[in-house]
């Protein structure tokens, strides 16, 4: 059954606080909203009140950044309880988070850190997904993260890891096509191979977003329009699923007006409705055709490494997603 039997909600956008007023005043013709769970689970004030009102009119999906499903620390029971309380209140169509870890030994990086993709990680994450699903009483939907390092101990590709995780636990997948693109650029992966390996019948949702291309690598900044190469990945992945899947545009920095945001996600219609044949991604991809977990050619001297590293350190901060915070409103 496609999408774990969950509905295709259509084209949605992330609900962010600069748009609260617009949404409440205009109730725009958006198919659905995704919310960052952490912006609401601890709120007993305006953000939560607004979410309750929005949830009365639109389908809502809760998307988290702090579950830390890959951490070797115990699952955070307090966090999960708050997540469940919010879900009981606003009845999201599903709950998602990322295939990542955010911290260990009680410390938090507030980043979506990658895992080595091997049997040890798979077994560890699968146990925790099962525990979370039992607690939340629903399938968890997990997103492929964008990442900037890979591990010597990885023994399988990311899509293979996700496929096996999904098979073992019954979890759904949130396929972020911008993350596929960004990680492929950063790790010399092949996007066509990635999409061919991902199990289409487990995909519940797509993410689209903009990123920053720094030449040597890409950063998942969520601060601009979706580039055509990512749209092409989207078209290919969307057509691979019977009935398509819910599609969501994320925009978390330099956030435009709501109308501009909405117009950007509506571009998806052109990409999924047109009758053009699907391009040969492999020939168009910037990534070299290496298997995802192979080791690229080692780079040269220690001097070059130090120079590159120093350059990276001096570069102006380009922030990967997350976060988006809601600031207090005062008189």
């Amino acid at each position: 059954m496609p999408r774990l039997g969950l509905p295709n909600l259509g084209l949605g956008v992330g609900l962010r606080s600069p748009h609260f007023r617009h949404v409440l005043d205009h109730w725009p013709d958006v198919d659905w909203f995704e919310v960052i769970s952490e912006n609401f689970i601890d709120s007993q004030g305006r953000p939560r009140s607004i979410l309750r009102r929005v949830a009365e009119r639109y389908p809502i999906v809760m998307h988290g950044v702090s579950m830390s499903i890959g951490s070797t620390d115990p699952l955070d029971a307090n966090y999960l309880q708050r997540l469940k309380s919010l879900a009981d209140e606003i009845k999201p169509v599903w709950i998602s988070d990322h295939l990542c870890w955010t911290g260990v030994l009680g410390k938090n990086s507030h980043d979506l850190l990658p895992l080595p993709l091997n049997e040890e990680s798979l077994s560890h994450v699968a146990q925790r997904v099962v525990a979370v699903q039992e607690f939340l009483e629903r399938p968890l939907v997990l997103e492929n993260p964008s990442s900037y390092v890979t591990f010597a101990s990885s023994s399988m590709s990311e899509p293979e890891f996700l496929r096996r995780l999904s098979q073992q636990t019954g979890c759904g997948l949130l396929l972020d096509l911008n993350n596929v693109y960004v990680s492929a650029r950063n790790h010399d992966w092949n996007t066509a191979e990635y999409l061919a390996q991902i199990p289409a019948d487990r995909i519940v949702q797509f993410h689209l977003a903009g990123h920053t291309d720094l030449g040597t690598h890409c950063i998942d900044t969520h601060d601009g329009q979706v580039i055509d190469d990512v749209w092409k990945l989207y078209r290919r992945a969307y057509r691979g699923i019977e009935g398509g899947a819910s599609t969501l545009l994320e925009w978390d920095a330099r956030i435009p007006s709501f109308d501009e945001l909405h117009a950007e996600v509506l571009r998806a219609r052109r990409w999924i409705d047109d009758c053009q044949p699907i391009e040969d991604l492999q020939s168009e991809s910037n990534a070299t055709a290496v298997v995802p977990f192979s080791m690229p050619a080692a780079t040269d001297s220690a001097t070059d490494s130090a120079t590159d590293s120093a350059t990276a350190r001096r570069a102006p901060p380009v922030l990967p997603h997350p976060p988006w915070m809601i600031s207090a409103e005062t008189e």
Binding site: Y148, H217, P296, T311, R313
Partner: peptide
Amino acid sequence: SQLLPSVQMPVEARLAVYQNAY
């Protein structure tokens, strides 16, 4: 020794993305 470089970036520069972002 646990981390891999990419074709264009050495390990230290890749790790610096996380360090700077943090």
